[in-house]
């Protein structure tokens, strides 16, 4: 790089400045809508009404809005329900997905590719479209307004997990299965004792993708969990659409509360989230 001319040097400097300018602009636009929400969440009613939304709050330790929002939206119940849904759906999805993927990847039976295609086709059908009749089915099964019904529905409509497991199984050598079988293992033993522990990276990926999905799912939760004590985190904010319509200092506090767990998990497992996303996207 020693023989650079003056013009070349200036050109490079300009490119560097432009590069950082666009990065800062991009980050600013990404953060701004959330940041202003944070400002308003710390403002008292009076302060909120008299200052511009872009001014910083006077007191960063003013937590009244958060307390009010927490109580009004019944966030304690919401977090409890979301936790139950999360644990059961993640467990169910991992078990169902890995078992199905094991069978599809290890046994060449009639209908194997048909089943693969049935699941592939299911990815094409947008969830919102089928809810018109899923609602009727849920009604017939008596599963509306039951946490269990929502959990089953969330487990049953996941195809991404199956693809991630399928890909992972296809990278595990079949010789592992064979040597275990020679040692006297059953197929069940092969799956639970030999292969399942090896699936750990895939399980983490599935849990992250599915976890984000469950935490943020609001459409079906709103449709199937309508009674008050069945509120989940994503739907807890709905309370603010009614009588609180424009009390944004409460609303913003509520938004920040629901956003916080996502932010903490994101900061803690950035790497896994990025790689999980990349893995989940190449389902082909």
């Amino acid at each position: 790089m020693t023989g650079m001319s003056m013009a070349e040097k200036i050109k490079r400097a300009v490119i560097t400045v432009l590069k950082y300018f666009t990065l800062l602009l991009g980050a600013f636009i990404a953060v701004l809508p959330v940041a202003v929400c944070l400002f308003s969440a710390f403002k008292s009613k009076n302060e909120y009404e008299t200052t511009n939304v872009m001014t910083l709050p006077q007191n960063w330790l003013y937590f009244d809005n958060f307390i009010t929002a927490w109580k009004k939206a019944d966030m304690l119940t919401a977090f409890k329900n979301t936790f139950i849904v999360m644990v059961l759906v993640l467990f169910g999805s991992v078990m169902i997905g890995s078992m199905l993927a094991y069978v599809l990847s290890r046994f060449a039976f009639k209908g194997n590719s048909l089943i693969r295609n049935l699941f592939l086709f299911a990815t094409m059908i947008p969830g919102v479209a089928t809810q018109v009749t899923v609602y009727q089915i849920m009604h017939a099964l008596g599963l509306i307004n039951k946490l269990g019904g929502y959990i089953i529905l969330m487990m049953g409509t996941d195809v991404i997990a199956i693809y991630i497991f399928l890909q992972f199984f296809e990278s595990l050598p079949v010789s592992l299965d064979e040597s275990a079988i020679i040692d006297g293992c059953t197929y069940f033993g092969v799956f639970f004792k030999i292969l399942f522990p090896l699936l750990k990276p895939a399980i983490i990926t599935v849990m992250i993708l599915k976890g984000v999905g469950v935490y943020n799912e609001y459409y079906m939760a709103n449709l199937y969990l309508q009674s008050k004590n069945l509120v989940v985190v994503s739907t807890s904010l709905y309370i603010f659409t009614g009588p609180y319509g424009n009390q944004y200092n409460y609303i913003c506090a509520g938004v920040i509360i629901t956003l916080l767990p996502a932010l903490i998990i994101f900061i803690a497992c950035q790497k896994q989230i990025y790689s999980g996303l990349t893995m989940g996207a190449v389902k082909g």
Partner: peptide
């Protein structure tokens, strides 16, 4: 990673 409902409120405000 932000929930759709929260995004809704954020942009109504915005």
């Amino acid at each position: 990673l932000i929930c759709g409902i929260a995004v809704g409120f954020i942009f109504k405000f915005f």
